[in-house]
């Protein structure tokens, strides 16, 4: 069963700036690590905010993990969908990293020991175990970003949205993120990653959605997402490094992801 289902979803911030026009977005996403890619202003962040009720569609329906979003408040959606904002400063307000990460499960009324254990696990996964008592604003951007990711995970939701998680991440942070996204996808969760980092998509995500000017141009296996060069160009996207390199070396179709690249290179025709 699909974990996220959108049917004919139309949305605009004002009539002058429509984001999703008629006939609207229709999309079904499986439990997997999913990349949401597309040019600036394509509607990526808007789409994710419709999933937890921060924004409400003008027409159409959104169902997340079996829950019709229209019937729930944002707070009621919180146990279902964890959300890490693009700009961490829009989200952080507690005095310590631990309190910040504990906020969600605490206000959901979960028992103290459960919250404690969930927070410890989330901090550990996000490399923040040593900074539990630090004030979030004493952290640099990349670390504040990790606090928002830990907060999204702490309530143990079946769906997790990460908006531009690679932003400001150094190499080690990016590796940690890749492992985390793969692990979440492998655990039968749906983790939706909004990103411009195509190389990250190739390495971490099984499924890719390409959004261009408010339209879904592709939704399917990442391995096939980069096959249509015209579509990629229209979406203002580039190919992952390995795909680009293999193509220049004569691969057709070109492999996607490091393992596929290495496998292709080993048996490439001379």
């Amino acid at each position: 069963m699909a974990e996220i289902v959108l049917r004919s979803v139309c949305f605009d911030y004002s009539s002058a700036v429509p984001v999703f026009r008629e006939p609207g977005i229709t999309l079904a996403l499986p439990q997997a690590a999913i990349a949401l890619i597309g040019e600036n202003g394509a509607g990526k962040t808007t789409l994710t905010k419709l999933l937890n009720g921060l924004l409400r569609p003008r027409t159409g329906s959104v169902v997340v993990a079996g829950t019709p979003v229209a019937e729930r408040s944002v707070a009621q959606m919180a146990p279902v969908i964890g959300y890490a904002f693009q700009n961490p400063d829009d989200q952080l307000f507690e005095r310590t990293v631990r309190d910040e990460v504990a906020f969600g499960p605490r206000v959901m009324g979960r028992p103290r020991e459960t919250v404690q254990a969930a927070v410890d696990r989330a901090l550990d996964l996000c490399g923040l175990a040593g900074q539990a008592s630090t004030h979030p604003h004493d952290l640099v951007l990349a670390e504040r970003k990790w606090v928002t990711i830990a907060s999204a995970l702490a309530a143990d939701p079946p769906v997790v949205v990460l908006d531009e998680p690679t932003l400001g991440q150094d190499w080690a942070g990016r590796e940690r993120l890749r492992a985390l996204v793969r692990a979440l996808g492998g655990q039968g969760r749906l983790v939706l990653v909004v990103t411009h980092d195509i190389d990250f998509v190739a390495q971490a995500c099984d499924w890719t959605v390409v959004l261009t000017r408010g339209l879904v141009r592709y939704s399917g296996r990442t391995a096939l997402a980069f096959a249509d060069e015209g579509r990629m160009e229209e979406a203002g996207l580039e190919l992952p490094a390995g795909t680009r390199l293999a193509r220049a070396l004569g691969a057709d179709p070109a492999p996607v992801g490091d393992e596929a690249f290495a496998a292709w290179y080993r048996v490439r025709p001379a």
């Binding site: 390199l245 220049a248 490091d258 290179y265 080993r266």
Partner: peptide
């Protein structure tokens, strides 16, 4: 070890090229 490695150098290392690793496309 600290800043990391450019993508094309990573791919070259993966298939046993270098050192020195190529750093550009």
């Amino acid at each position: 070890a600290s800043a990391g490695i450019p993508a094309f150098a990573r791919l070259a290392a993966l298939v046993g090229k270098g050192p020195p690793l190529p750093v550009t496309f």
